[in-house]
């Protein structure tokens, strides 16, 4: 694999100070502040190939954003090595910084009081983009995201979704080879999320860009990524394809029946599977290997309008993974990746 990102034993520790409650404790803390070391990242190793679109998943405080900050050279690690596009990120070489972009959903990088067009112009100067290429790329991105009318409006007057689209335009103007996205859809409505998904999928396929995405929304992941890395408590818990997450960490499937009438609860309870009845709709949780055997039996003698057999939702699996922590730790072999 042609590794664009290669990380070995990357660790980041912070010293944090504890602030005890009360006036006396506050006065005491002027002279002695108790502190402890927090391990935000505990020796993470991985490689990412050119053109991969990977998702970094994990609960709050898992170390996802710290990992992105290390890969983009914002902070320096306590231990370990990393190379992104052949560069050590925290050396902050201009040649490196010209080849990637970082978009943070919770931080605004456009000039707040000015139209985005002014930020784009500044971006052209900073990244030394040739004027013809700049105009071509800007027009293409603006067209793709449908934000042509917004570029001359002050950023402070835009909605969150509109602003995020313009942030993406700014980030992509210099045509980066690697794009780090830190929760880009946070706070966006479904329509705006969907628009960003389509745009990112299109731009990644067209430019063969390597994208690392951190998100809490499984819809982002399902729509865009083939490979997911689950981080909890600063360590990688799972690294593999999305399909493999489902196969490996769920033993059940969800069978949903739409019946003509509301059924008798006891009738389904007798089948011995966990079930939930909502009006004429019945949801059963059945072991994967038994589906083929038991489904005919379930359908027999019942007036069924529709039936569906689905995997357990990704959100549920990943949430369970977060909860189980190390208990579910499993690193899939390289060949299992998408």
């Amino acid at each position: 694999m042609n590794a664009v990102i290669a990380v070995e034993g990357l660790a980041k520790e912070y010293r944090v100070f504890d602030k005890p409650e009360g006036l006396a404790a506050s006065v005491k803390s002027l002279f002695h502040r108790p502190s402890r070391v927090v391990e935000a990242l505990k020796g993470v190793s991985l490689t990412v190939g050119r053109g991969e679109f990977i998702a970094l998943l994990g609960p709050n405080g898992a170390g996802k954003t710290t990992f992105l900050k290390l890969l983009s050279g914002i902070i320096t690690p306590t231990r370990g090595t990393a190379r992104v596009l052949g560069h050590v990120p925290w050396e902050r070489a201009d040649d490196f910084r010209r080849r990637f972009a970082l978009v943070m959903g919770q931080k605004n990088q456009l000039w707040w009081d000015l139209p985005a067009a002014e930020s784009f112009r500044l971006h052209r100067e900073i990244y030394r983009i040739e004027p013809g290429r700049f105009e071509r790329t800007r027009d293409e991105l603006v067209e793709l995201l449908g934000v042509k009318k917004l570029v001359l409006q002050p950023v402070r007057d835009l909605s969150l979704g509109e602003r995020m689209k313009l942030e993406l335009v700014a980030a992509l103007l210099h045509e980066p080879e690697v794009l780090f996205l830190d929760e880009p859809t946070i706070g966006l409505d479904v329509v705006a999320q969907h628009a960003l998904h389509r745009f990112l999928a299109h731009i990644q396929a067209e430019r063969k860009m390597t994208i690392v995405l951190t998100t809490h929304y499984m819809k982002d992941v399902a729509a865009l990524c083939h490979r997911a890395i689950v981080i909890t408590d600063g360590a990688i818990l799972y690294d593999g394809s999305l399909d493999q997450i489902v196969d490996r960490f769920t033993t059940h499937k969800i069978v949903t029946l739409d019946l003509d009438d509301t059924p008798d609860a006891d009738d389904f309870a007798r089948l011995g599977f966990p079930c939930e009845i909502r009006g004429p709709q019945v949801t059963l949780r059945i072991e994967r290997q038994r589906i083929a055997d038991v489904l005919p039996e379930i359908l027999r003698g019942r007036q069924v309008r529709d039936v569906s057999v689905e995997d357990v939702p990704l959100e549920e699996i990943v949430a369970e993974l977060f909860r189980s922590g190390a208990a579910g730790a499993a690193r899939l072999p390289e060949e299992a990746r998408a």
């Binding site: 990637f100 970082l102 943070m104």
Partner: peptide, 10 residues
């Protein structure tokens, strides 16, 4: 906000 500055090639 300083993060955004540190990633720029300048």
């Amino acid at each position: 906000g300083l993060d955004g500055v540190l990633v720029q090639p300048l």
